[in-house]
């Protein structure tokens, strides 16, 4: 605490609040959080799949909230409810679609380079948590799918011992996990993932240093 931070906001650190503000601004400077420029190499359609997955998740949440407003049986008895259920299903399919293409892209870019491993890890955990969230969604539809999927899945989950605490045949428990606990977990993971992306920046191309020079390339000037 005796060291002067790079941002020169040491004077604000006499209170806890000032300390928190200074540390937050040091960790996530606003120009990193909401950038209006990108490194020149961020120029490929593969970069749009992160934001597409994010916005699909927003649509998943909004359509899910509408279903939550009306309660779990609404979509079974109302054609409007069934339409909102369709929105929920297709936004989930889009969410996974974009997330998987995003994952492939980041893998082939080796996007974990430059101390960005935690970004990859939070993304991978988000993918796994999303699978769990979608799975519980199937369990709370109150239809044939729910009956079949829950009675099949119980054997796998029981075999790990988890089934003794997390009962896929208990509609009430699964409904609360699906509408509260798991979406909260996925949301927190996504926020962490995006904050990590924004603070460390988009990974440079393979074989390019931070000044933009390409290793071993014929001497071309890299500066703008």
């Amino acid at each position: 605490m005796s060291q002067t931070p790079a941002s020169g906001r040491a004077g604000e650190r006499s209170t806890w609040t000032g300390w928190l503000r200074a540390h937050t601004l040091d960790a996530i400077p606003p120009e990193h959080l909401l950038p209006d420029t990108q490194p020149a190499y961020v120029a490929s359609w593969i970069y749009v799949f992160g934001v597409l997955a994010l916005t699909a998740f927003v649509v998943v949440c909004v359509s899910g909230l509408v279903i939550a407003l009306k309660g779990p049986t609404w979509w079974q008895v109302s054609s409007r409810g069934h339409f909102v259920n369709s929105l929920h299903l297709w936004s989930v399919e889009l969410f996974f679609f974009f997330m998987v293409v995003h994952l492939w892209g980041k893998f082939f870019m080796a996007a974990w380079r430059g101390r960005r491993a935690l970004t990859w890890m939070t993304g991978a955990v988000t993918f796994l948590a999303s699978i769990g969230t979608a799975f519980t969604g199937y369990l709370v539809q109150q239809n044939f799918d729910s009956q079949w999927i829950s009675t099949q899945a119980k054997d796998g989950i029981n075999a790990t011992g988890i089934g003794a605490f997390w009962n896929v045949l208990d509609f009430g428990q699964m409904l609360l996990w699906h509408v509260a606990l798991l979406p909260l977990a996925v949301s927190v993971l996504i926020v962490l993932h995006i904050l990590l992306v924004r603070t460390s920046g988009v990974v440079p191309p393979i074989g390019v240093d931070l000044d933009g020079r390409v290793e071993g390339a014929a001497a071309k000037e890299a500066a703008p």
Binding site: D36, Q38, A40, A43, V203, P204, D209, L210
Partner: peptide, 13 residues
């Protein structure tokens, strides 16, 4: 070599 802030060319975004 990839850890740190990019100092090369940028584009509007």
């Amino acid at each position: 070599p990839a850890a740190g802030d990019w100092r090369g060319p940028r584009r509007p975004y």
